[in-house]
Amino acid sequence: MSSRKRFSLRVLLVFLLVLLFLAGATNTLLQHPARSPVNCYVPAVHGTEEQGPKKQTSVGKALSRGIVHGTSSLEMVSMVGDPEQQHGGRPSLYVGEFQQSSKSLVAIPVGIKNKAAVDKLVSKFPADRFTLMVFHYDGAGEEQWDDLEWSRSAVHVSARGQTKWWFAKRFLHPDIVAEYDYVFLWDEDVEVDAFDPVRYLDIVNREGLEVSQTALDRRSEIHHGITARAQLRPGVQGGGDVHRRFCTASALGGGGCDDISSGPPCAGWVEMMVPVFSRAAWRCGQGMVQNDLVHAWGLDYKLGYCAQGDRTLKVGVVDSEYVLHRGVPTLGGTEGNVAAFRSAVRRRSHAEMQIFDRRWKEAAANDVSWTDPYQ
């Protein structure tokens, strides 16, 4: 083959290679058009652990650093007026470090049959210090409560036949109630003649209680001795305002508690009818509430883990501000089958306690990074 033919063949091969390269590049461009760089900053949510890659959402990746707010509140906001002058629209709450408010949240399950008792209970909480949220478990809507003045400013949530803890898990997420200093998660069947919520919080703050409850008048339905009101003894345990321990030597007796007992229900323990949580304690406690368990039996024995420190110091019962627990069955059942229904509720409650206890043990065994401080 002559040198001229060899040269022509080489030129042809080069030309073919160029065509193949151009065809591949065009196909790549058609399948993957050019894109602008994306800022992959994922804003951290206040008070929560940083999310792993599998939990990062496209929202967090797509938005700029300053536009995402990790917390909100339950404050009502007007549809008109200057948003920067309205409580619910104040942007200063969510710029930079979170600023604490001076309000607390009261959340109560309510039934229309107990309207008068609920009105008396709720009226104890001044509107300038407390935001109110009511859970309607009987299907009665807001309009049936509208004749009460406080009802018009309360947040109403309705779901027929659901418990307090079912509502709390779904509507009291820590990021939603992060503005409030304390969360009162109370039953409706308590009488509050001897209770002042402002004085109560003054005592809780002074004593450094992260999880607390009012003491129960001794005429109440009392399930555990530690919840009964102790005799006020000035100069002892905060001047008689608070007790943190229960011993069998007290008037109620029982329970196998002594003056060195350090675990629930002898110390570091409150019951689930009228608990009060600090902001930090509720973030922990709400996470502990199980998605599918609605009676919260067994949870009271673990709330001390949410005390932000030594549960024997930071969990307590306030004696000087006490309530009367009437122990009236309110949720579910009709006049003809109340007893059968309550029996079925107790069976499920006991089953849930066993399930929760098993889950706790399994979780503790599987998490090698966690150490039980009270083992």
Rank of each mutant, 00 (worst) to 15 (best):
R4G: 08
R6F: 04
V14Y: 13
V18E: 12
A34R: 15
V38I: 15
N39I: 04
P43M: 10
P43Q: 04
T48R: 12
E49I: 13
Q51V: 11
K55H: 13
Q56M: 13
S58P: 02
V59R: 08
R65T: 14
G66N: 12
V68L: 07
S78T: 11
S78I: 13
V80S: 15
G81W: 12
D82P: 06
H87I: 04
Y94G: 05
E97N: 03
F98K: 00
Q99P: 14
Q99L: 14
Q100G: 02
I108A: 08
I108W: 01
V110L: 15
I112C: 11
K113L: 15
K115W: 09
K115G: 05
D119S: 10
K120A: 10
D128C: 01
R129W: 00
T131L: 09
L132F: 08
F135N: 05
H136W: 04
D138I: 02
G139I: 05
G139S: 14
A140K: 11
Q144D: 07
L148E: 08
S158K: 11
R160I: 01
K164W: 08
R170F: 09
D181G: 13
Y182A: 14
Y182C: 03
L185S: 06
L185P: 03
D189S: 13
E191H: 15
D193C: 08
D193V: 06
A194F: 11
V211T: 02
L216S: 00
L216G: 05
D217H: 03
R219E: 14
H224C: 05
I226S: 01
I226T: 05
I226W: 10
R229L: 13
L232M: 15
G235C: 12
G235V: 06
G235D: 06
Q237H: 02
G239W: 09
G239T: 13
R244M: 02
A251P: 06
L252A: 09
G253A: 10
G254K: 14
G255F: 03
C257T: 03
D258H: 07
S262A: 12
S262P: 07
P264M: 03
W269M: 08
S278G: 00
S278D: 03
A280Q: 07
G285A: 15
M288T: 02
Q290F: 04
N291E: 14
A296P: 01
W297L: 04
L303H: 04
G304C: 13
G304M: 07
G304I: 00
A307L: 06
Q308W: 12
D310P: 09
K314A: 01
K314I: 05
V315C: 00
D319T: 13
D319W: 02
Y322A: 05
V323S: 00
H325N: 12
R326T: 06
G327W: 05
V328R: 04
P329A: 06
G333R: 03
G336E: 12
A340K: 08
A344Y: 14
R346F: 10
R346A: 01
R347S: 15
I355G: 00
F356H: 08
R358E: 13
R359P: 11
W360V: 08
K361R: 12
K361M: 02
A364V: 12
V368S: 06
Y374M: 01
Q375F: 03
